[in-house]
Design a protein around this nucleic acid. Structure first.
Lengths: 216, 216
DNA sequence: TCCTGTGAAGGCTTTCACAGCT
DNA sequence: AGCTGTGAAAGCCTTCACAGGA
């Protein structure tokens, strides 16, 4: 009964949370949709509509009590608990992920790691044990996680995704430059800065051809 | 006269290019919109519609000549040349970016770097000279770049973005967990895996409450 | 027969605009 | 007066469905 809230709305909520938490830290107690919209670069109507999917959090004439709203949104998003993640691939990128403390600071713990290279299997990196990818099902059975992180070469990414799905993983954060096909209930988010650069160049190119974008 | 091609379309083109290049490498010469759609998880109609914004690249009854299509798309996106980038922030993340060869392999060169820390200013990391952020305008005047990469702490990100914009930068790849406000002609793409995790947990949470997603 | 290119339809998302509460 | 919550309108994007070419 996940009553059809548009995915775009869900994807904006973390943005609201982040900015509201900054305001809490700054001591602000109340904010209007207009003010929050200005900070985020979205329209006030969009903020009000988004929030209205989940309840009535505001006070007419005043705005939203920031601390209370943050609490509600964190609870809606499931950010009121910690989440366990398994990392697959401990090459350059995987190691950077293990060394990064930003996930843990936000409640996401990398609990275990996997790799195919026998030279790293059995080691512990930044406190995280590295297992052989072959024992993925065993280890995830013993020590279940909520989220899988893929940090392997593109050519291996689909096979890893398939295995994670087989192990009952429903959420995948994919760092490989590959399009992953997964069954419907599984969610994939891909981190791919090259793809992002490759779409920005379209506008750079157009701008060069037409240095005054307003004209003609 | 950038005749209003929806941004979502532009953002899909690099995806098409990537998959088509894989097929070229595998020796395939022709592909139908249905086949490409299957590989990418999008509808054939969407692929045909997207491509139709730019021309008529297909042959009825046959499909698209892959090599030719890749060439067209790369040219449309501006991927038929190299692009110069400036990195701001050479902390952990910035160094990982400098060490990463994936940008250069795709035609994006980090030409120079900036930081505020006097201990790194003047050094050369992975072949890239690190300048003081204070001389950003001078250095970019001397050695212009097309794209700025922000890899500084969130609290400093907006100020860096403002400076890059002042220096005439129109494209920014932002790794800081911050919402950047920039004037209209400037494009920002943000890389923020935490935000992506924070929206996936919504679905994990719902699934736990309702283990059989299909039921009433 | 197979598949593209494309108007039209359909569906989804954003924005408007205002009743109603503080 | 100020601001929310929300139906309705507008706008945008995707999908349909088919004419027409190979």
């Amino acid at each position: 009964m996940t009553d059809e809230i548009p995915e775009v709305v869900i994807e904006r909520l973390p943005l609201y949370v982040r900015t509201l938490e900054l305001l809490v830290g700054a001591g602000q107690e109340v904010i209007s949709s207009r003010e929050l919209g200005d900070l985020l670069g979205v329209t006030p109507a969009q903020i009000r509509k988004d929030l209205s999917y989940f309840g009535r959090f505001g006070k007419q004439g005043r705005g939203y009590a920031i601390a209370a709203l943050v609490g509600q949104l964190r609870s809606i998003l499931g950010l009121d608990r910690r989440w366990r993640m398994a990392l697959v691939g401990v090459g350059h990128l995987g190691r950077a992920i293990l060394a990064y403390d930003g996930f843990a600071r936000q409640g996401f713990d990398v609990a275990l790691a996997f790799d195919a290279d026998p030279r790293v299997v059995g080691t512990v990196i930044d406190g995280v044990p590295v297992h052989d990818i072959a024992v993925l099902p065993d280890e995830l059975g013993r020590s279940p996680v909520d989220i899988g992180i893929i940090a392997v070469p593109a050519r291996a990414a689909q096979a890893v995704a398939d295995r994670l799905v087989e192990c009952g993983i429903f959420s995948i954060l994919n760092y490989a430059p590959a399009t992953l096909r997964v069954p419907a209930p599984v969610h994939v988010r891909t981190v791919d800065p090259v793809l992002q650069l490759q779409s920005m160049t379209y506008y750079l190119k157009s701008a060069e051809a037409d240095p005054v974008p307003s004209g003609a």
